[in-house]
């Protein structure tokens, strides 16, 4: 698997898609900072619940604030990153050298999750520095131990985003085409933002809403310290989603014929 990871590194470094994603990930916090500055100029101040990120301390929530942008960015990147292997036929190269499909799948998943972690780190780090310099580091209201809050929120947000990315990986392996993967990943992202809310309106099924990772990204207020009580459930839902999506994606891939 280390050999495959070495191959992935070479592919990512040599290709343009990776650098495009890196560029966008770097631009994202700068864009959000400029946006906040603009709001600050016209409205006189930022409100924590509305803006989520108002200073250096709350910048840990930048990947939450930008979650839809990050998910859509990865939706496109993963569709190309994996779909291209099928469309150019390059997937035949490692597989025909005796590499098992499980190893191939896990390598792609590991790279995708690694890039998600990198994105969360870069976005959070740059935002903390940028917002800290412009608006001051400040603090999170009601949070007694910022260190604990920071790490738990960071890991949780990574896990929630990683769940979405794992689904994109599964979809790409199932569709084996860039176009189809893009469409279905987009449908999934939008659908998971809307569908879970439906359960809220059905008596007895309200709790189902909270078995979808995007419900937490879209509807939970992370600026309150009470969010830490939800961390175990959020981690469970996230990693369960990653596990189920990967099992389905891998089984589909294992049974499929490679053209």
């Amino acid at each position: 698997m280390l050999n495959l990871l070495r191959a992935e590194r070479l592919k990512l470094q040599g290709g343009r898609k990776f650098w495009l994603v890196v560029g966008l990930v770097i631009i994202l916090p700068i864009f959000q900072l400029l946006n906040s500055l603009s709001k600050n100029h016209y409205q006189g101040g930022l409100t924590l619940q509305v803006d989520q990120v108002v200073n250096g301390a709350s910048a840990v929530l930048m990947s939450l604030k930008s979650n839809l942008l990050i998910l859509l960015l990865f939706c496109a990147f993963i569709s190309f990153y994996i779909g291209e292997e099928f469309e150019t036929g390059t997937i035949r190269n490692p597989l025909s050298l005796g590499t098992s499909r499980l190893k191939f799948y896990l390598t792609k998943l590991a790279v995708a999750l690694g890039l998600t972690a990198l994105t969360v780190i870069v976005v959070t780090g740059m935002s903390m520095v940028g917002y800290g310099l412009v608006f001051g580091f400040g603090k999170m209201a009601g949070v007694t131990s910022y260190g604990v809050y920071f790490w738990l929120v960071l890991v949780t947000l990574f896990s929630l985003l990683a769940a979405g990315v794992a689904v994109y990986v599964a979809i790409s392996f199932m569709t084996q085409k860039i176009g189809s993967a893009l469409i279905w990943s987009f449908v999934y992202t939008i659908g998971m933002g809307l569908v879970p809310g439906v359960f809220q309106k059905i008596n007895g099924l309200e709790s189902v809403t909270w078995w979808f990772t995007e419900s937490y990204l879209f509807y939970v207020n992370f600026t309150r310290p009470q969010v830490l009580d939800l961390v175990p459930k959020m981690l469970l839902v996230s990693w369960l989603t990653i596990l189920i999506a990967s099992l389905i994606g891998y089984q589909w891939f294992k049974r499929s014929d490679i053209k």
Binding site: G14, G15, T88
Partner: peptide, 8 residues
Amino acid sequence: TPALYPEL
């Protein structure tokens, strides 16, 4: 077809 990475 030759299975190659076009951008490399």
